[in-house]
Amino acid sequence: MSITISNISKSYKNVKALQDISFEVKENELFGLIGPDGAGKTTLFRILTTLLIANEGTATVAGFDVISDYKMIRNSVGYMPGKFSLYQDLTVEENLNFFATIFGTTIEENYDLIKDIYVQIEPFKDRRAGKLSGGMKQKLALCCALIHKPKVLFLDEPTTGVDPVSRKEFWDMLKRLQQKGITILVSTPYMDEAALCDRIALIQAGKILEIDTPKAIVKHYSKPIYNVRANNMYQLINSLNDYEYNHSVYPFGEFVHYTDKRADFNQKELKMYLETKNLTDIEIEKTIATIEDTFMELAK
């Protein structure tokens, strides 16, 4: 096991950030921690990277206890905090050199590990980190977190505030790193990224809702789900919310995801109801549940 977490609880004064969290991450796994802002993802990361001590419970990372062997953990993990935190007034190369030196290594020694990523930012190696674009900064931060060849990599919301193209590139990079034998624990508020993980844990308000592979999690969603569309989105949501048989109504892109309480749901009946609400161009069709639907259902 690369990471084991058992019965971890942490509270800040009156706020319970984590409540009795337990799960395991296997060797060489890409594990996603999915949850909205304030769910406790960062707190968990800080406990695992030895920055914070839990109130209760134990955890090990790469076989070392987070409290008694914290020094060993610091040698063998890479951590990329959500906020870009490198020296803005040092150049790309100086930043990388700095982190290599304090880990007692050199860029050359582990160059093959970061090569794929570093070649993309190498043309700007004499530029100050503060002057890089968002995607570049993120690549540099990843390089800095990898420079000492960590066994476990912690990425706290690495793609928040990054454009869709860079996001996709970033996930491709993670996949390649995984192939090089690095265990990756990544947190994200984006449900679409969850599907790219080997396994995911859905977390909300300091509690784990569900842990499984993305495919299995979707299967947990038993109710048939419908895409509904009409000419007026706002009125559509209001009307569906007023509908007496509705089970859940969530806007989802250009559609509204709708589920019904009844087993013998009839699409025509709903269409007729919506027409009485002066909606036109109504479309109703069955669709497949996504992780987001599962999350919303579980979080209910």
Binding site: N75, S85, F103
Partner: peptide, 13 residues
């Protein structure tokens, strides 16, 4: 303030 202290604290320094 800029968050690098946290990054430093995770290193074996």
């Amino acid at each position: 303030e800029i968050g690098t202290l946290e990054q430093i604290n995770v290193t074996p320094i």
